[in-house]
């Protein structure tokens, strides 16, 4: 789905999964140990593991890693060459489009309005870069789907679970300022205490 803030990418302990500026969320197959955290945090469990391949075989295969995770990479290599993703190019009905985010979002809204339809992917998991437009409500679409490994469903309004950590994360980013402010305040207090002590002792001596 190439989410706006993809937990599958940000939570990878080796940063083998990354969201590029062009929007593509791509797993580096040479860096992935197949730990499947990305699958766990994805509401659709889109990343799937191919066991028995990858870099983990060359490290500690019995103790860490289990293969390589795979997901759609938006044909990122083709995008770099200025080509369209394979699926977009191959579809005989031109059912899929790719383009600048604003244009695609506007087009999706317009199509949805015209067919009195529905959009999926705009708000799901905190927003994605993949929009589905359908005249059939997605509750009904989802009801026909059965979530299985490699077969995601289309449940409406799935939450971005990692959003729960955002508030604490922001507090972490503020922690350096907190520490510095407390340090400066503490040091000034110490300085003024020392000054008043010195004055006192001067008075005594005087």
């Amino acid at each position: 789905m190439h989410c706006d803030n993809p937990a599958c990418a940000t939570i990878c302990p080796f940063s083998a999964n990354h969201k590029y500026a062009n929007g593509a969320v791509v797993i580096d197959q040479d860096l992935c140990f197949g730990g499947a955290k990305c699958k766990t945090v994805c509401p659709w469990e889109i990343p799937q593991r191919q066991s028995g391949v990858g870099i983990y075989l060359h490290v500690l295969p019995d103790y860490m890693g289990n293969g390589v995770m795979y997901k759609c990479d938006l044909c990122n290599d083709r995008l770099r060459e200025g080509k369209e993703p394979g699926c977009v190019e191959a579809c005989p009905h031109k059912a899929m489009l790719i383009g600048p985010r604003r244009e695609i979002f506007a087009l999706a809204e317009e199509r949805s309005r015209r067919m009195k339809g529905h959009i999926y992917g705009k708000d799901e998991n905190g927003g994605t870069s993949t929009l589905y437009v359908s005249p059939v409500p997605f509750e009904l679409v989802n009801a026909t789907m059965k979530k299985e490994p490699g077969k995601p469903d289309m449940q409406l309004g799935v939450k971005r679970k990692m959003a729960e950590t955002d508030t604490v994360g922001k507090a972490v980013l503020a922690a350096p300022a907190l520490g510095i402010a407390a340090g400066v305040a503490g040091a000034f207090k110490w300085l003024s205490d020392r000054k008043s002590k010195m004055k006192e002792s001067e008075k005594k001596d005087g």
Partner: peptide
């Protein structure tokens, strides 16, 4: 935990640095 860790570490450097 890192809020405590980061704040305490920076406090340490600033406080003792200034003293």
């Amino acid at each position: 935990a890192s809020i405590v860790f980061v704040a305490a570490s920076l406090f340490h450097v600033v406080y003792h640095g200034m003293r």
